[in-house]
Amino acid sequence: MATRKTAAKSNVSTDELLSYYRDMLLIRRFEEKAGQLYGMGLIGGFCHLYIGQEAVVVGLEAAAEEGDKRITSYRDHGHMLACGMDPNGVMAELTGREGGYSKGKGGSMHMFSKEKHFYGGHGIVGAQVPLGAGLAFADKYKENGRVTFTYFGDGAANQGQVYEAFNMAALWKLPVIFVIENNQYAMGTAQKRSTSTEEIHKRGEPFGIPGELVDGMNVLAVKDAGDKAVAHCREGKGPYILEIKTYRYRGHSMSDPAKYRTREEVQKMREERDPIEQVRGMLLKAEVGEDKLKEIDKEIKEIVNASADFSKESPEPALEELWTDIYADEIPQEVN
């Protein structure tokens, strides 16, 4: 893929690299496990895996500060793990159990954490874009200096409400980063078959929103771009667009026949561009021993296995839960 790389700073510390490695590996292993549980019938309905795209959320979370918000679409497991939500609670929501983030009532596409400022998990393509601008609207209203990361895909980038949100976000200088996770396929439709222009990051230009293209397989490039976008928003200059070119190794959802791209294309990306392997290479070069990496692999495997166990052991929600949380009695308190 022809990607202009955003130059990555070279002064990244080994500790930072280790933390990116760990966070990306957690998402990868978690998603593999979710795929497995889906195959066993423990997870139902739709399940959209994030495998291949890990560097996007891990790089941007590294640019975020406490209190910043994030909102995304239905391919949301990676975002939740990256912002520090508990893998047990996420996996138990996937299996529809009481211990899940939404008590089993939301499922894969609808999870939230007020504590971690994660505002979903939305199942309607593009709907989260004005919602994200609205979160930023609330922050600007409260003058709290926070920034909202609003994630959507190359497919959603063709939705009309995205441009309505661009217009108002620019008009009102909202502190929102529009993150276009361009994995190059809108479900099974390649970008060139669905999108009139190749450079989606330039679609903010008519609204006066700066945008840039970022190599989404390189976590350091994503982090640098994130830093720049965050600074722009915090300075009160309004929204920023990051088109992060990435790749989804798995199907759109679990029931994807994969007829729209070749196995070779996927294999080539995995072998040559894998975000985790890239960091692994850097760590080995920095003389972090294989042992250290194996230790991390083992630790991650344990976390993921524990989440799978929890998600099987947690009971199904009580039938009374059918009738709760339809109306609130009082406004839930803000967590700051």
């Binding site: 919602l131 609205g134 979160l135 609330a138 309505e164 949100a165 008009l171």
Partner: peptide, 27 residues
């Protein structure tokens, strides 16, 4: 003008923004 806001004629977008603002703690 901070609390009484004219919007462009884009119901889908400004309604979404308002719902997001409600998620974010406004009414």
């Amino acid at each position: 003008p901070k609390r009484v806001i004219d919007t462009p004629i884009t119901e889908h977008g400004f309604t979404g923004i308002a719902v997001g603002a409600a998620f974010g703690g406004l009414k």
